[in-house]
Write a protein that binds this DNA or RNA. Structure first.
Length: 387
RNA sequence: AGAUUGUAGUAUUGCUU
């Protein structure tokens, strides 16, 4: 049974979901009983792939597999619904745990708070937070950090800071994530001075892991890039690299993004060359960032050349690479070239809603609404829902 | 007994803002 579950997981993870789930049927025929542990792993895999319908179907099948869903099962599915924006269903799952003889724990409550917060529903998030407390559970650092992140996300830094004060008062120590969420909020607002202030407080605090500090710096550097202060970003870039090797790839892609936006392609290219010289494999994010940069700067031929170079270096184009190519080529009046990549993606079954939106937008802008309509109709054939 | 099972924070692609 273990062997078969492993096979099911491998198939599912690699995107062959049908075949993966079919293994369960085989098991039933052979009289083997899958464990709840393994089913939950499958469910988490589907959730992380955003395959909500498949996750839902798996839950529905559990009775025929003679398995009782447990709290982890339901929490995983709540997350799946949240990622899909189906907040009513997520709430209902928690509310109906009792029907299965289960009771929500801190993780389940936190998942639901996050479901609301990540979808901008902060009144709901706060109300669920209170219900959790009323049920006798003490909110932990995750609960508070989730609320901070939610308020920051909707631009209510006053509320985010209030939550920070609340947690301190209640004796829950803020951690790196609590501060990262605040930083992100200030960066999003473009208030880098306030962000620096948070950074100072973070550095003075005892017990914050070095790894979290590096993570926070990465947020700050990106904030400077987004606000157009490339010089300060570059200054911090070296500091961060010296401080935390984990941030290496994120730092490079962030700074390369900055250079490409500032039309400083020589410097962007220079950083990639520097990485190549180390002989270590280049992170696809870095490569994709530079690729997009060539298109932004109106140099589609440089972009195509880059793709060839990277292939030779053993970096293979992924879905984002192809979407970047399709967008870049179509916005540089190279529709025919874009369609070559589009056909390739369809053959690989890697097209997604962005691929279609890109092309539909391009055709609409060029006045070819008939082609746009066609593509819209075609999406459904690939099981892609318009958003 | 064992096993990669659920919750919060960075970088690249579309539309919206």
């Amino acid at each position: 049974a273990r062997e078969m579950m492993r096979r099911a997981q491998d198939l599912t993870k690699s995107g062959r979901i049908r075949q993966g789930l079919a293994v369960l049927d085989e098991m039933v025929q052979m009289g083997l009983q899958p464990s709840i542990y393994c089913i939950n792993i499958l469910l988490a895999t589907l959730t992380n792939l955003r395959k909500v319908e498949e996750a839902e179907a798996l839950l529905d099948r559990m009775p025929t597999l003679n398995i009782e869903p447990d709290l982890i099962t339901f929490t995983t599915l709540m997350k799946a619904y949240a990622l899909d924006g189906q907040l009513d269903k997520a709430s209902k799952l928690l509310a109906e745990l009792g029907l299965s003889g289960l009771k929500a724990d801190l993780t389940a409550w936190n998942t639901l708070v996050h479901a609301m917060a990540s979808n901008g529903m902060m009144n709901e998030a706060a109300s669920i937070f209170e219900k959790m407390r009323a049920s006798g559970l003490e909110p932990d650092v995750v609960s508070y950090s989730t609320l901070i992140g939610g308020w920051a996300r909707v631009g209510r830094m006053d509320m985010a800071l209030q939550v920070l004060a609340d947690m301190k008062e209640r004796g829950v120590e803020p951690n790196g994530v609590s501060y990262a969420n605040l930083l992100k909020g200030w960066c999003k607002k473009g208030d880098l001075e306030k962000a620096e202030g948070i950074m100072d407080e973070l550095k003075q605090r005892e017990g914050i892991e070095e790894e979290s500090i590096g993570y926070c710096y990465a947020i700050l550097v990106n904030g400077y890039v987004e606000s157009g202060n490339l010089e300060r970003a570059v200054e911090l870039f070296d500091e961060v690299l010296a401080r935390d090797a984990n941030q290496h790839d994120a730092m490079y892609s962030t700074i390369i993004k900055g250079f490409t936006r500032a039309k400083r392609m020589e410097e962007a290219q220079g950083l990639v060359d520097k990485l190549k010289a180390t002989g270590r494999p280049i992170n696809p994010w870095i490569f994709n960032t530079l690729l997009n940069g060539w298109f932004l700067n109106g140099q589609p031929d440089m972009a195509l050349e880059l793709v060839e170079t990277m292939k030779k270096e053993g970096v293979h184009p992924d879905q984002i690479t192809n979407n970047t190519l399709i967008k870049g080529l179509s916005m540089n009046q190279r529709m025919d070239d874009a369609l070559v990549f589009f056909e390739q993606m369809k053959a690989d079954k890697t097209v997604d809603v962005r691929t279609y939106t890109t092309l539909i937008t391009a055709y609409t802008k060029s006045g070819d609404t008939a082609r746009a309509q066609e593509l819209y109709a075609e999406m459904a054939q690939f099981g892609i829902k318009p958003d």
